[in-house]
Design a protein around this nucleic acid. Sequence first.
RNA 1: GGGGCUGUAGUUCAGACGGUUAGAACGCCGGCCUGUCACGCCGGAGGUCGCGGGUUCGAUCCCCGUCGGCCCCGCCA
Length: 617
Amino acid sequence: METGKLKRTLSGEINESCTGSEFNLKGWVMHYRDHGGLIFIDLRDYAGIIQIVFDETVSHESFNTAKKIKNEYVISVTGKVRTRPEGTENENLETGKIEIEAKALEILNECEVLPFQIEEESDTNELLRLKYRYLDLRRKKMKDNLIFRSKFNFLIREFLNKNGFFDIETPFLTKSTPEGSRDFLVPSRLNNGSFYALPQSPQLFKQILMVSGFEKYYQIVRCFRDEDLRADRQPEFTQLDMEMSFIEQKDIMSLAEEMFAFIFDKLLNIKLNLPIKIMDYDDAMEIYGSDKPDTRFAMQLNTVSDIFKNSSLNVFKDCLSKKGVIKAICFKNGADLLSRKDIDELLTVVKDFGGKGLAWTKVAAAEEKLKSDKCSAHNAESIYIQKCRLEGGIAKFITEEEGDILLDRLKAESGDIIFYQADSKKIADMVLGRLRLYLAKKYNLISDNKFNFLWVINFPLFEYSEEEKKIVAIHHPFTAPNAEDIELLDANPLIAKSQSYDLVLNGEEIGGGSIRIHKPELQAKIFEILSIKPEDARLKFGFLLDALSFGAPPHGGIAFGIDRVLMLLRNEDSIRDVIAFPKTQKAQCPLSDAPSEVKYEQLRELGIKVIEKDKHI
RNA sequence: GGGGCUGUAGUUCAGACGGUUAGAACGCCGGCCUGUCACGCCGGAGGUCGCGGGUUCGAUCCCCGUCGGCCCCGCCA
């Protein structure tokens, strides 16, 4: 039966106003309901779902063909749109008031029995979903995620093109730079024994484009890092990479936030409050114990070392004598929520985080009679608040005076529970920062549908790597120091701050960048601090150093992790759900079965011999 | 490299001190049904209990190993 004479129409283009007209639809059979003399089909195309009715009395031929249909068959249907009989409308369908009365039907392709059912909410094991990814992507949620991604990318391009940016491609076959993460290597057939590396990011090339004079560059580009995977990390991932010349940190930051405001407005109809809040790296660590604070809930870290300077508690005393700090967080209304057993379990959690122990006290109301004192309602409350007391845990080691200052500083009230960490500042911040997130997640303190952006700036330029026993760059070696910190570089480089900035969304780092060094002399000094010998620097980054010596403009940039942003905007737990063909935790693709062994002949041509790992050649 | 969880029908799961025939739901196959929409009703098929070894009269269950998946730490400038 010829059904293709009419131009194909999508289900989403048909509505009540089409009643009486004839259309041709093509798509997949979502549901099939055979009632004997009447067959219903929910036809799915990428725009939506519409009900087709096959009636023997309308078309005997197509009715008989319809008898053969099964789920996920691909069909072409021609028929008239009609309103459904009263009482049979389906409110769950956008097209639920109408249906297609099938006149002609063609089965374009059949479908084997499916390895799993195609449902809105899949609880199918992810390995199977990835193996049959094309089926998984037929699910509405996955389809919507990828279409959302497409629109997101389009809006980025629209915004940046409007702002004078050029989209310029950079090489995938490039030079291995062993700084940073592990490279994926690609053997060169024409240069036996030599290897390209897939780029960890287009960092060096985008800087060189600035030297070329393009001034505003962007690229939505794949980056490759051969490191272990996580829910938010894939070996290949997509960055929005940007670089600009003659520009300062604040300009890059405001451009970036305008871009997000533009996208949020167009895509989500959400108006972002600009400018986005800015936090110093030092404050982020001090208050949130993290360089990517989740500001959707409070439970901030407080330093309470001074309160306990004469503490009788040995753990506190010892810690302070070793120049450590005592920090505390207050879990609002946590006292009743956490049983003694829960607190004991938290100790295990804290030890996993690297903490030595977990001190706690609950906050209780003071004597009952105080509450009944005769005074105004306002005063009664203030008395009530002031007369909280600590109990349980380490309460007996805390004097009333210490407790009063502590309660005041943490703004703690009856029913709260306070956790303490006494350790080096670094460990105490880190442990409490992680405990804070753990508690928030476990006890649902984070409000949904909230998008909290935050800039974190003034990162240190360097840190000391215990493992490598040397100073290493926190961002990358081309990051410019703060102008006022340049003189620190000789005497005390570890306290120098950099002109770098991370954009944080809901506690996830979604992007980061810096103003780059554009003077060869300063770059040489940084390499010296990083113990990179001039000849090694030449070997690794010689082409960049050359470029910087030929009139490099001041420049800087930023890069955003597109997958992570999309994961947050789509409320997914993993970036795999916003990537069409992601890899498993072992970096394998169950669909294509990559990576795989290759023929000896291929290896021979490349001059490569595979040896058993961990055995010496 | 390390820690945790996990693997039973096509799918999602249940199961048993170690003991005849390993269950349910959905899916699949056959039949019936003219207003369903996760259609319904009747009937049926479908299992190397991830793989290998051990203990045992007997293992899907216990032990050892191994492979895979997910989460996390390390790692990811």
